[in-house]
Design a binder for these strands. Sequence first.
DNA 1: CATGAATGAGCCTTCATTCAT
DNA 2: TATGAATGAAGGCTCATTCAT
Lengths: 199, 199, 199, 199
Amino acid sequence: MPKVSDAYVEQRREQILDAALRCFSLQGLHRTTLDDICADVGLSKGAVYNYFKSKKEIVQALRDRSAADEEAPMSPLVEPGGLEGLRAVAREVFGRMDDRSERDARRVGAMLWSEALLDSEILRSQVDSTEAYRPKFDAAIVAAQEAGTLPSSIEPRALSVLILGAVIGVQLQHEWEPGIDVGAVGEAFDALLTASGNA
Amino acid sequence: MPKVSDAYVEQRREQILDAALRCFSLQGLHRTTLDDICADVGLSKGAVYNYFKSKKEIVQALRDRSAADEEAPMSPLVEPGGLEGLRAVAREVFGRMDDRSERDARRVGAMLWSEALLDSEILRSQVDSTEAYRPKFDAAIVAAQEAGTLPSSIEPRALSVLILGAVIGVQLQHEWEPGIDVGAVGEAFDALLTASGNA
Amino acid sequence: MPKVSDAYVEQRREQILDAALRCFSLQGLHRTTLDDICADVGLSKGAVYNYFKSKKEIVQALRDRSAADEEAPMSPLVEPGGLEGLRAVAREVFGRMDDRSERDARRVGAMLWSEALLDSEILRSQVDSTEAYRPKFDAAIVAAQEAGTLPSSIEPRALSVLILGAVIGVQLQHEWEPGIDVGAVGEAFDALLTASGNA
Amino acid sequence: MPKVSDAYVEQRREQILDAALRCFSLQGLHRTTLDDICADVGLSKGAVYNYFKSKKEIVQALRDRSAADEEAPMSPLVEPGGLEGLRAVAREVFGRMDDRSERDARRVGAMLWSEALLDSEILRSQVDSTEAYRPKFDAAIVAAQEAGTLPSSIEPRALSVLILGAVIGVQLQHEWEPGIDVGAVGEAFDALLTASGNA
DNA sequence: CATGAATGAGCCTTCATTCAT
DNA sequence: TATGAATGAAGGCTCATTCAT
């Protein structure tokens, strides 16, 4: 019978993950030490190890936590769906890239993209979360094609890879060069998509 | 004064970089040790340190070396330029993503994208090399717009960020999921671009 | 002042010691953690620390507890005493080495033999308990010599060391190689002792 | 091609093992840290790890090294063999127990007896080395029985276990209580063995 | 009395870097 | 130049012990 509630445990885990996110964003996954995280969260090493049994588990938890955040902006794919859905998602996603409060999450997210190349568990989580909403992407594309607002010659799956790729790549460039006007990039995407439908 | 010719030195450096590329591709920048690289290249640690004064310098050299490889496929931007140039570049770039012989380079390249978030020198090299051909991108886009084959409402710079982003993001996804059909993605890109010009 | 009876306290202590014995037998004195013991006994760490003020004290208590068990089989040394007493003790001791229910106690006992080399308190307890019955050994030997059933040229003290040593060493070998037939070893001891008396 | 000779490597390994033996004898296997060993041998930790890849490997090497030392005193079992061989071995073994220069080896040896209960590799080495000379023991006993100098009713294997056990147990007692006169114990053994043959 | 979260010293191990040969 | 033994600063993780509830 635990002395503290599950909510307390969950809260502690979140605190630790928040600290880890800050540290990772600042120093990277590998240069951040457990001591850094402990100092940031204000707990001893032993305490942290009561909530996560290894550094890798913290990284995993962070990766899993971000999966949820990635799914939210995809809802327009279902409703209204079609071209409008794709445009709404793009608006949302490109728009959020300037949100300061999510900067650490975006940076660490990008680091995990690299980590996924080397760590099969990270990769699994990464791919799973991407594949979770790819069908919605595909469906929206198909709907747009059927509505005649997107060239029907394009393979839906390929286009969804292309669009998701653009989001990923623009986000990376934006972290490299914060001066990049992601708002304009979003508009360019919107214009391109819209124009291609009027062909 | 060196007893050996510059060519010999350069050759040795290339051998070491080749070995490092293989190791980094396999184990990542941080998990690869100098011993791994030494074992791969068949030299002692002391020898390696005669050509690079630190592990970081090896990483830097690799990053710089890849800059050259990135510039080559961009030549169609100048000649023929315009929409055709953009399409030719895309064809080339997406086409190369399936080239097995460049897989290590692509993987390490992707790792460096992440490293650039943390290391200002890597970032500098990364941004410099990107910015080196971005003007050509922009020029080709402007040319296409003037030729009426691309919507003139799109901000050229934003579109170049979007396109480069797509390349980056598709490459990442392809490394995560080798099953992705990058050829089809290239075609999708081509179709999208072409269609938007006929609006 | 304690709210609970001494009997309750004693019972709890015994439960903890039983758990510790199982853990130590399985993992050794040093590899066993307090958490292991707590898990085995089903108490929290705080509870355990209410009954023993350190891990070392648990080890000590176990060592002290085994002293009692070691004294019991020695009673034949007094009655009937002499060669018969020695033979009876040997029968009893070698016979018990196959008792599954005492296996953990034997294993931990052997671990404490090693620990006694390093810890003066364990050593003290170990030596005290051995020396407690050594006089009886000596007396039985002397009695046998006087009865002419053991060579009088043998120094009693030396023979008692030899016999106790044999018991210790056979027990160790038996734990290393459970296949050893300790019954036969007991008979060999008996035969040797008997034969030497008929010289 | 190693810069240093194999002999140099072997010498370094021996130096480290010697240091480890001193530390283990003083503080035990578990309380001794790598730093203790490094300080004793006068090398850095990194250097020690060039010769042994873990602390456990040092322990193993020590255990294996002692196997050789244990075999040497057993040669009389073959020549002259029989009862005389057994007596000669006993004389040698009990005689060496007072050798100061082998004290650390004896103490660590005893610690390994305990460790063998928990570590299957140590156990393997321990049992292997014991079983290596047990056949010679058995053969000498059989020879003595055939010569009529040992009761033929005794099972040879059981007697060899008993004798080896006596050596082990006496050694342990001697380390606990250095005051024990092992010379006298050796004589007691000799007398017992001799007397039993005259029955 | 019981609980178990928190502490923090300490341990084993790794690895970039140096330097005598 | 090439070698690889040696260095030593960290880093991840463990665990006996404490103490507020």
